[in-house]
């Protein structure tokens, strides 16, 4: 009896349909996210499921799954806590955040707390350097974190609370997030609208606004030159 329900099998078909006929292998990355949404990691069953759906050898699927950081090889917690420790966040305090969480949770990189709530990892640059140091929970951002704040955050998660990320949508579980990564809409009412742009995102714009600066001469009716006219 497979752990992959009819709904998941239907979704697998939907993923395959996004790509040209005969190019169904393109569906592999989203399909790995899909199986992760069921089990919280890419299990041998998940690999077999992908292989069956796409007509691939299990070894082909395993080779791809093991290449990418976001496919987890062991069961994960409900919340994946990723702390950026790449250079910029690192020097701004990200390493201290990671070290504090390691000590507080008693787990290291890519390890899960005994209660099954949190998987911790140090991450490479998360493309939010203007908000550094940053961490993410299931990939939604918590900006400008410090060790105490980070410890408080994970304690809340372990107590069943779901703090609101700084900019992204309200939190869901890692399994629920994996459905979105497989390319399906976030169907939680209002989640897409969550999150407003922070100060760093708008820094240059607000300055331009304050000083009344905008590019000159922008006329949307400017004609597109045609080859005949040019000749």
């Amino acid at each position: 009896m497979t752990v992959f329900s009819q709904e998941i099998q239907d979704r697998a078909k939907e993923i395959i349909a996004r790509y040209p006929e005969g190019k169904q292998r393109s569906a592999l990355l989203p399909m790995l996210h899909l199986v992760q949404s069921v089990e919280g990691y890419v299990s041998p069953d998940g690999i077999e499921f992908c292989a069956d759906q796409l007509g691939l050898q299990k070894a082909n699927v395993g080779a791809v799954a093991s290449f990418y950081t976001m496919y987890k090889r062991r069961p994960t917690g409900d919340f994946l806590v990723s702390v950026c420790t790449n250079t910029m966040c690192n020097v701004l305090g990200g390493q201290a955040v990671y070290d504090a969480l390691t000590e507080h949770l008693g787990v290291g990189h890519d390890e899960t707390t005994a209660d099954g709530t949190i998987t911790l990892e140090h991450a490479e640059c998360l493309a939010a350097c203007d908000y550094g140091p940053v961490m993410t929970v299931n990939y939604d951002f918590f900006d400008g974190v410090n060790p105490d704040g980070a410890v408080e955050l994970v304690d809340k998660l372990r107590q069943g609370e779901r703090p609101q990320p700084s900019r992204g949508a309200r939190l869901c579980t890692l399994k629920e997030m994996s459905i979105q990564l497989a390319g399906f809409a976030d169907d939680r009412d209002g989640a897409v609208a969550d999150g407003v742009a922070g100060d760093p995102t708008l820094a240059g714009l607000k300055l331009a606004q304050k000083h009344g600066v905008s590019p000159k001469g922008f006329d949307i009716n400017t004609p597109i030159p045609t080859a005949e006219k040019k000749a």
Binding site: A123, M177, D186
Partner: peptide, 14 residues
């Protein structure tokens, strides 16, 4: 789109 960019992807898919 980068996998970790989940909120950007939400908005983009929408």
């Amino acid at each position: 789109i980068r996998g970790e960019a989940v909120h950007a992807a939400r908005r983009l898919r929408n």
